[in-house]
Design a protein around this nucleic acid. Sequence first.
DNA 1: ACCTGTCAAGTCTGG
DNA 2: CCAGACTTGACAGGT
Length: 326
Amino acid sequence: MIVRLGYVAMSMRVHNASPSKTMTATNFAKLEDRAAAIRKLERIAAENLHNTLRLLKHNKAHDIELYRCSSKLIPLWSHEMLQGWDPLSVLKDDFAELGAYAKENGMRLSFHPDHFTVLSTPRAEVLRNSQQDLSNHTAMLEAMGLDLSGKNNIHIGGTYGNKATAMKRFIEHFMELPDPIRLRMTLENDDKTFTALETLEACEKVGAPMVLDIHHHQVNHNGESAAELWPRILHTWNGQTKQASAEALPPKIHVSSPKNDKDIRSHADFIDASTLYDFLRSIASYTPNLDVMIEAKMKDEALFQLMEDICRLSGVARLTQASFEL
DNA sequence: ACCTGTCAAGTCTGG
DNA sequence: CCAGACTTGACAGGT
């Protein structure tokens, strides 16, 4: 099995390279000249994109081919105050440059719209905002020129006291999404509400690949092991591959480690390599490729540390600075 | 230069 | 029914 490691949004090594600079809504509202305020938002967005490109170059230098873009690239986009604003018309060259660089270097990019995007919601307005947010994220992937392997990952959402009806709503809302949005979706198990098994069942119903988060699974399951679910999870990626693109899309998992014994849901600075290694070994024989997204506070620093730890612990064949074979 | 409270957005819990 | 917690990086305003 070939394993590639990646990280989320920002680097601990590349300084002053935030891809998530922003402006608060109150601050935007305070500015008298609306046109100038919008130009300022566009400048911030362009800076975020420029920093994302710097990060991709850093990634290339370290053989990192997996990266999740910040969901805050364009500040206040879809805020009601900014109705009618079309930031992509101004930023399309910047997005195209990013996408071209990623493609040239075999990089896999994704987004993870944050927890305000909830398709299981019973509230019409929340649903509308969620659809808008997914539409915006899809537009950014398209502006980068990425094929359908460029994904938006979300959770199932809240349960509202009744998991069954919440799931039913989720599935209805999901299937109503326009194809260009729906075909870019992946679904991830949650640490509090929908378990890996429940998320997997949703994925099978709607035909979306499942991103397994092994930390979330650890703190939210009903006795089933991640390893026993894996064959079915793997299958959700095979189905999608047939549907979406001729090129095989490796399955992706998320890893993080509990901060401490008292606070097991929070993310630690680094990754516990042996827990991950045990899981990888259990699925390696029938999983040719795997992408592992590291969700640790120390970001890329945790990636480098994990690579060291895994090599020392197991003697896997190190392929590059951010990939190995076992 | 550094510290603290606040921030567009949602949902859950506890009072 | 409402306030506060949850969680995150970064702004904004203070010292």
